[in-house]
Structures are given as structure tokens and as C-alpha cells.
Write a protein that binds this DNA or RNA. Structure first.
Length: 553
DNA sequence: GCCGTTTTCGGCCCGACTGTTTTCAGTCG
């Protein structure tokens, strides 16, 4: 059993404890132990074998045996006991905003509520308002929260759509009558939030294909001779569009959308639209190929010159990478190796600053340890060039966390992690003040949004774009699929005002280094090319730029 | 439950916000 699995079990136990315990300390102890196990340098199995488990901070006589049992038998009787006390799916209630484990615990104890549907009924029957710690307003908020959660239920982040699309396409390949299949729709357009996955199938035997689709998706529903719906992975709606091979190009174009784009295309194109693929279709129509990402409306068909969009292989390095020094899951060495394995020439490490207490922000002394670690590890990974940075909080008054100590860093990502509900004016002033700090290199995730979870804070985009351009501060395109912030809808405007972008993964693990790819989706969708992205530049140019900026201070 | 030590219990615990309270609890980042 690996360290992360052990940590997940401890976290689950902590969750259950919170449901029943009145004080937070016991559950926090389990959470602390989980974090401790995650950050272990060595394998937890080895630690148990050598009887050194109890030397680990946060693991004592209570939690130690839990881990030991887990490692030896693969299960935890304590967790199983807890699971047996509550209905499965009790944590599903966490999807209702402002509903935490304490309140869920009360709802279950007093009203035996185990699901969102039951909660809605109880709130409508006015039973929730009477509970201790609840009231009329909380009850009202719960009902609103349920509505919010339901609306989200039918939406998915793009990576989920891409995964389902690929999976289904692979399964379709096994059906003999299918000559070709392509993922279309909003997934192909790389829209950040999707409702379904559209897949176009080329076949000469549509009936025989339709008869076999139930092997791939559930709840098959035949809409007409060419359209079939189903559900993949028991939650994601899939729409199949069937076409004869010589009509495949047009079918892909139509299913990719948007409708506005497809209609404008067909109006512009000739009458004979038979084509085996989209490239052929565009060629036949005498229209320059429009990348799917740019088809949200018909504007691109009016352009004379095609923009050259950025490609992931244009990226030479990246910034905004977290490590175990703050809230990352992997060590400095592991993150740097991941950057090298990606073929990068440089990588910027940036852990949190002290104001981000909940994320384990680093005090000055810890920064020194981290930088010594970076110095050691970067030697081993040469020629990879490592930049020592920070993701420092923009404090509520617009000053930067670390203050003058920002001099310790090669680069500074300035981000907001607190006081989200300021007015637009206040928030804009706060950010503008930070941008005037000459040590700030990059403005991190501009709006702090979490897709499908919470809206971003309010800002005046134009004023911030102008200030970034004026001060030469790079604007981050945060590639975390939950953020994708700055939004692609703002990129062209920002670029036209002279803003330079940087695509960052905001990686908290080796796996999340791939967020640089999702970052390029945003840039492409915004119509941005390599020239406008700072980290397409070579390592020498980047190093020189950073140094020049630092000495200007 | 863990930790530390004024050695066996008491403290752990950031800060804003909201709503429930009438001084605090729950949630969130």
C-alpha cells in the first residue's frame, strides 16, 4: 500500500470523525497525520517494518496502529466501523455550498437525512430551521445551495469530456462496421465546461452500428436514423452522430458547432459538400481551415488572415510549481524531474507565502531551506535551469506578503487567496497596488474562479490589463482545468493592450504538470500565438529578462 | 489524537464572513 492511499484513508477517517465529534481536534490529528504521511520521503511500508512509524510527527499511539493494520492487511477496521455507522453517500451532501461536516452530522443525527433529496424535503417542510445552530436564513441558503448543486450536476469539466471521448472512441474501434469516429462538439472546441460528449461515426451500415452501441453506453435512446444518445460512466451524456463516409466531413463540422459557425460555413461554401473529412471539406469550399477552438461564433470566417495559434510543443519552460514545502504532493526533486521529462529547459518553483496559512505558506527561514534544496537538486538536473520563486499573497491592502524579503526570489507570482468578497473597485485597487510593486513578475489567476464551484472575484479587466502592460507584469494563464483563469474570452483584448502572457500549471503534483497543456487550450481558444506567450522563449532570454527586472528595483 | 513537559493533562487554533446567538460556531480558502 502506497503512502497516498494511506493518507486518503486517514482523511476519510477524519471526515467521519467530524460528523460526530464536537471538538475539531481529533479529526485534525488524523488530517495532520495524513499530510505527514503524504510528505514522507520513504515508503510507509518500510517505516512500519522498521518500527519507526511512531517517530513520524503527528503519528502516535492512536493513529500508529491504524496505519500498521492498513499496511499489513490492506484495510482498516476503524474506518469500516465508522462507515457502518453512516449511510453510504453521506458526504454527497458536501456538494451543497456552505454545508460542512458539522451541519451534515446534525442533519443526520436529528432528521436522519442522508441525501440531497431528503434534505430538500426537510427544508421545504420547515424542519431544518428548527435545528440547533440552524435558522430560517440557513434553511433558505440550503435550498438555494441544492439548486446550485443540481445545476452543476449536469455539467462537467473539459478533462472529463476528453477522457470519455477517448474511451468511447477506443471502444468504437472494435466495431467492424465503423470506418472512422471523431470526438466533436464542445469537447473538440475545448470549451472549459461541457454538458455532453458528441461523437461522429462514419459507417455504411448505421442500423447495425446502432444495435451495438448499448455495449458502450447505458440508457441508449435512438433519436432518429442518425442520432443516438446514451450515458457513459453512469453520468456523462454522449450523443452519437452517424454519417456515410462521404458525408463524414460535413457531419463532423456540424457536430463540432457552434450552430452559428456551421450555418455560416455552409452559407459560404458551395453546394457539393461531400467530403471524407473536415480538411477536405474546407478545401472543397475554398475556405481556410478554422481551428475548432475558434468556432464559438462565425467571426473567424470573416477574417482574411488565419492566426497562428500556440502549440504545446512551443513551450520551453514554465513557472508556478508547488512542492511539499507548502501544499504540493511531490518534492522539489520530483517536480523538477517532471519538468525535465516534459522536455522543458527551465522551471520556476513557487510555493505559498505565510499569509496562505492553510496552504502551508513558507516563512523566510523555510524559504532558505527550500532554496538550498533547489540548489542541490538543480545541479543533478542540469542543464535544466531552475528559477527560485514564490506565489506570494496580495494582502487585502494591496501590499505584498514577504514585503522587502521578496528580494530573495528570482520571480514572484502575485495571487489573491483571501477576502474574495470585496467590491470590484476595492479589488481592482488592491491588485493595481500590487502591480506597482516592482518585484512582482507575474499576476497569478486573475479572478480566483473555481469552475463549477464558485465565481471569481470582481475586477475591472481593462484597468488591470493596462497596468500589467505598463508595468511589464506577465499575466498568468492558469492551466488548472478547474481554474483556466484568465478566461479565454479576454485574451485578445488583453493582448491588444500590450499584455504578455505566461502559461503556468499551478502544479501541486507531478501529474498536474500536464496543466501546461490545458493552459494552451485557453491560449488557442483566445486566438493567441507563441509570440504572446513569455514561456515560449528560450532559457537565456528568460533568465536575462528576469534578471533585468530584478536589477531595476 | 498528538504533543510536551512546570511529567500526565491542557492546549492544539489563521482570519473573514455569516448567521445564530447574546459571545460563539461553522464554513471556506
Amino acid at each position: 500500500m502506497d503512502n497516498f492511499t494511506v493518507a486518503r484513508v486517514l482523511d476519510e477517517i477524519a471526515h467521519y470523525i467530524q460528523l460526530s465529534e464536537t471538538t475539531p481536534f481529533k479529526s485534525r490529528a488524523f488530517e495532520r497525520a495524513a499530510r505527514s504521511v503524504e510528505k514522507l520521503e520513504q515508503d510507509v511500508n518500510a517505516l512500519v517494518a522498521s518500527h519507526k512509524l511512531l517517530d513520524t510527527p503527528g503519528i502516535g499511539k492512536g493513529i500508529g496502529p491504524v496505519i500498521e493494520e492498513l499496511v499489513k492487511s490492506g484495510k482498516s477496521s476503524y474506518l469500516e466501523e465508522l462507515r457502518a455507522q453512516y449511510p453510504p453517500g453521506i458526504f454527497d451532501l458536501l456538494r451543497v455550498p456552505n454545508l460542512g461536516l458539522k451541519k451534515i452530522g446534525v442533519l443526520y443525527e436529528r432528521l436522519a437525512i442522508t441525501s440531497i433529496d431528503e434534505l430538500e424535503r426537510a427544508a421545504k417542510d420547515n424542519l431544518v430551521a428548527a435545528l440547533p445552530g440552524f435558522g430560517a436564513k440557513t434553511q433558505q441558503k440550503i435550498l438555494q445551495g441544492i439548486e446550485f448543486a443540481r445545476k452543476r450536476e449536469s455539467q462537467f469539466l473539459l478533462p472529463a469530456g476528453l477522457e470519455v471521448g477517448e474511451l468511447v472512441r477506443e471502444q468504437l474501434a472494435a466495431i467492424e462496421e465503423i470506418e472512422d469516429a471523431e470526438v466533436a462538439g464542445s469537447v473538440r472546441r475545448r470549451l472549459e465546461v461541457i454538458r455532453n460528449v458528441n461523437i461522429v461515426i462514419a459507417t455504411r451500415a448505421p442500423e447495425r452500428v446502432i444495435a451495438q452501441l448499448s455495449r458502450i453506453v447505458a440508457d441508449v435512446e435512438v433519436i432518429d436514423e442518425t442520432t443516438v444518445k446514451g450515458i457513459a460512466r453512469s453520468e456523462v451524456p454522449v450523443v452519437f452522430h452517424l454519417a456515410y463516409p462521404d458525408q463524414f466531413g460535413l457531419a463532423v463540422l456540424r457536430a463540432t458547432g457552434t450552430r452559428e459557425f456551421a450555418e455560416a460555413f455552409e452559407a459560404k461554401a458551395g453546394r457539393d459538400l461531400a467530403a471524407r473529412n473536415e480538411e477536405q471539406l474546407f478545401e472543397k469550399a475554398g475556405i481556410a481551415f478554422v481551428e475548432p477552438e475558434l468556432r464559438e461564433n462565425a467571426d473567424e470566417l470573416k477574417r482574411k488572415k488565419r492566426p497562428k495559434l500556440i502549440h504545446p510543443s512551443d513551450l520551453r519552460g514554465t513557472f508556478h510549481v508547488h512542492t511539499t514545502y507548502s501544499d504540493g504532493r511531490n518534492s522539489v526533486a520530483e517536480m523538477l524531474a517532471a519538468a525535465r521529462d516534459r522536455g522543458f529547459d527551465y522551471c520556476g518553483i513557487s510555493d505559498h507565502s505565510p499569509a496562505a496559512y492553510y496552504a502551508g505558506g513558507l516563512p523566510k527561514e523555510r524559504v532558505k531551506e527550500q532554496q538550498a534544496d533547489i540548489a542541490r537538486e538543480s545541479k543533478k538536473l542540469a542543464p535544466l535551469r531552475v528559477f527560485r520563486g514564490t506565489e506570494a499573497d496580495i494582502l487585502p491592502d494591496g501590499t505584498m506578503d514577504y514585503g522587502d524579503d521578496l528580494d530573495m526570489f528570482d520571480f514572484v507570482v502575485a495571487s489573491i487567496h483571501s477576502r474574495f468578497q470585496m467590491t470590484e473597485d476595492e479589488m481592482t485597487e488592491r491588485i493595481l497596488t500590487a502591480l506597482d510593486d516592482p518585484r512582482v513578475t507575474i499576476l497569478g489567476h486573475l479572478t480566483g474562479r473555481r469552475l463549477l464551484t464558485r465565481n471569481g472575484y470582481l475586477v475591472n479587466y481593462d484597468r488591470i490589463f493596462d497596468k500589467c502592460a505598463e508595468r511589464g507584469v506577465l499575466m498568468e494563464i492558469n492551466g488548472n482545468p478547474q481554474r483556466l483563469d484568465l478566461d479565454w474570452r479576454h485574451l485578445r483584448k488583453a493582448a491588444s493592450r500590450g499584455v504578455m502572457f505566461v502559461i503556468n500549471p499551478d502544479a501541486h503534483s507531478v501529474r498536474e504538470m500536464s496543466h501546461v497543456i490545458s493552459g494552451t487550450w485557453v491560449a488557442r481558444k483566445g486566438g493567441i500565438g507563441a509570440k504572446e506567450i513569455f514561456n515560449t522563449r528560450g532559457v537565456d532570454e528568460v533568465a536575462e529578462w528576469l534578471e533585468k527586472r530584478a536589477t531595476k528595483v
